[in-house]
Amino acid sequence: MIAQLIEGPLWYFSLTVFVLGVLWRLFMILRAGAKKDLAVPRDGGGAGALRAIFSRFVPERTVRRHGKVQLIAGYMFHLGLFALLFLARPHVDFFAERITGIGWWSMPHWAFIVAAEVAFAGLIMLWLYRLLNPVTRLLSSADDYVGTVLVFLVMLSGCLALAQSVEALRLIHLLLAELLLIYFPFSSLMHAFTFAFSRGYTGATMGRKGIRA
């Protein structure tokens, strides 16, 4: 009963909430608009936006020096998570079956394990850093912790279901992933999409002013 619910209706519901929620959030952000810049542009805003979106992947010097843990753990977590999400065999099969209809290249099992290790190490360290550093602790809201815990639980349940033989464990993983999908659009997890907007906006503003930074 519960299994069918998780497998079917809840999955479609969460996917719908996710897609519509993300689109709605992005639409609202775009609709909010930007105040017209009346100054004479010195350079193109588009180039500046593009430059900022990509150049910010390499953080600024002071961050590189003083935020090593966050930087390394952050990259470990995000790269590991993306590899897991899109290139793990069970996920590729799931996407192919449920969404895209076609599969794509998936990692060999050992790379899957390595990606999981890397992602776990990164996530736990980031989480601890958030708790231990008084600044990040002050800056963190309940939303940050809910997001972190949900992602952690999804990853943990996925790793516990690694044997791919116990149906109950797979369903727990799927259920948690569905909860994450529902939570996603209304939380700071939206940074997965909005980072391009914030960076692009800053980059465009600076680009128009002729600043290359």
Binding site: I113, L156, C159, L160, A161, L162, A163, V166, L169
Partner: peptide, 8 residues
């Protein structure tokens, strides 16, 4: 679950 988690 314990075995897979332990290994990972």
């Amino acid at each position: 679950a314990a075995k897979e988690g332990h290994n990972l």
